[in-house]
Each structure stands twice: as C-alpha cells, then as structure tokens.
C-alpha cells in the first residue's frame, strides 16, 4: 500500500495542486476582473455562478450519468442567466457602485436559496470522470486533475484569443479603456456589457464545474472562492487582466506550499497578510500601471 511520501514528493504534489488550482481560480478571477474593469461592478454573486457550475455538473452526473453534459449545461445556463441578470437588475443601477453591490448580494441570496431548496444543504461529491492515476516523479497523480489543468489552460488561451484577436474582444477592451470614445467609435457599449457579464458568469461556472470532482459541492461553496478571487484581484490590481493571472498563480502556489506545514486557514491568513502588505506598498496592486 502507499508508502510514506518523502518531502520531495510532497513538494511536487503542492506544485501540481497549486498549478491546477491556480488555473481554475484564474478563470473565476478573470471573469470578476473583466466585469469590474468594464462596468465598475463588484459582483458579489460571482462566487455563486461558480457554485452553480459545480451544482449543475453534479446534476449532470446524477440525472444523466454524464459529467461532461453537466459541465456544458452549466456554461450555457450561467451564460444565459448572466445576460438576463445584467439586463434586468444590473442595468437599472448602472453607475451607482454601492447599489450594484446591494443588487448582487440580493442575487447571491436568491441563487443560494434556490440551490438550497432543490439541491439540498448537505455537501455532495462528484466522482472524477476520468478515473486514472498517473505515476511520475515518484508520485501518483489523478489524471483528471491534469486534464482540468489542460482544459482551464485552453479556456484561458481561448479567452486571450477572444479578447485580443477578435473584434468582440477589441470592443470589450476599447470600452474598458474609455466608454465615451468607444461609443463614439460606433461600438454598442450596452451590448458589450451584456456580453461581458455573460462571459464572466460562464467562466466562473466553468471553473466550478471543473472543480466539482476535486472539492465538495455545497450551496455556500462560492463564498470561499469569492474571498480568494477578491484577494487575487486586489493583489493583481483591480481590472488588470495580466495582474489577475499572475496573482492567481502566486497565491495558489503559496497557499498550497503553506498547507504543507500549516492548516488551510493559516495559509489563507498569510494570503490576507500579503494582501495587506501589497496595499501598503502598492495600493493599486502589484501590476497596476
């Protein structure tokens, strides 16, 4: 049976887990930062889109015995939900930051309670859809996690291509820079808002669906992800895509390393302290211009 892992084994595991987790959380945090950068909205319900992704993946397994179907359902569903939410309840309070927070808190409650009423209040697990472990460098590692890293990485690349190589991406970036100039250039900023909010929700749900087999599915699981995403976004600089991506790796790897010698909560406290230090030294984030 399993032999006692050496310190080297543990470090390799921490690195692998850190990278996998960084890629997942980057999906979530990038959605958050896109929405903020464009619309000045602090989306409290962002963690709940993540939770919805995980819950729908669970339903995919429970109802159709098909995880992949669940994950795709999750993305489609949250993309539509995001668009509806933007039009119906975000639009009326646009430009009033405190009110957008209130609205998204309200939304967060509604999503959580709906899930609680249907899915239930006890944590569930989703079996890994790929049940293979790979042995290398003296450790055994679940193939599914490597797969998650691959898919997240691809999604990030796709996002990059979308943002930097397509006209839609150009519209989003132009509107992020200056809304007035963007609309003067003939960009329909209102459509860009819907598209971005929907995209952000979808990215978060994809993260949640991919993470479902790795963590526990629970109606409040979005809170922890919201916390870590916010820490990352603050460290990276609000609205900075590059900063968010780099900070996701720093924090995720760090927390995984620290949990080698401490509890996850202590690791989180250290992330918080790092955030505090960054705020003192570079108030607008490490990668702000």
């Amino acid at each position: 049976m399993p032999i006692e892992p050496t310190i080297v084994n543990k470090i390799i595991l921490a690195i692998l887990n850190g990278v996998v987790w960084a890629l997942i959380i980057a999906l979530v945090a990038l959605g958050l930062t896109l929405i903020f950068g464009l619309m000045d909205i602090v989306n409290i319900a962002h963690g709940d889109f993540y939770m919805l992704g995980a819950v729908l993946a669970w339903y995919g397994v429970a109802l159709f015995n098909n995880f992949w179907l669940g994950a795709v359902m999750a993305m489609i569903f949250t993309a539509i939900l995001g668009a509806v939410v933007e039009r119906s309840i975000i639009r009326p309070v646009e430009g009033l930051p405190a009110f957008t927070v209130v609205v998204t808190i309200g939304l967060s409650y509604i999503i959580q309670q709906s899930v609680l009423a249907t899915f239930g209040g006890s944590p569930q697990t989703v079996p890994e859809p790929i049940r293979l472990t790979i042995e290398f460098l003296g450790i055994r590692y679940p193939a599914y996690r490597l797969f998650v890293a691959g898919v997240s990485g691809l999604a990030l690349i796709a996002l990059g291509v979308f943002l930097f190589k397509t006209p839609y991406g150009l519209w989003i970036r132009a509107s992020m820079q200056d809304k007035e100039i963007a609309s003067a250039m003939g960009i329909n900023v209102s459509n860009v808002y819907i598209m971005t909010f929907s995209l952000g929700a979808m990215l978060s749900a994809l993260g949640g669906a991919l993470a479902a087999p790795i963590t526990q599915v629970f109606y409040l699981m979005g809170l922890d992800v919201l916390a870590i995403s916010f820490i990352i976004v603050i460290i990276g600089g609000l609205g900075s895509l590059k900063g968010t991506l780099i900070a996701a790796f720093i924090i995720s790897l760090l927390e995984n390393f620290i949990t080698l010698v401490a509890t996850p909560t202590e690791a989180r406290v250290i992330s918080l302290l790092i955030m505090g230090a960054v705020l003192l030294i570079r108030p607008k984030g490490l990668f702000s211009t």
């Binding site: 309840i89 309070v93 209130v102 808190i105 309200g106």
Partner: peptide, 12 residues
C-alpha cells in the same frame, strides 16, 4: 430569498 428580492427591489 425574500430578503434578496427585497434588496433588489428597494434599490431599483
């Protein structure tokens, strides 16, 4: 969920 709806309703 009622509280949530109330919050949305009030600010709008």
């Amino acid at each position: 969920s009622i509280i949530g709806a109330l919050m949305i309703f009030v600010v709008i």
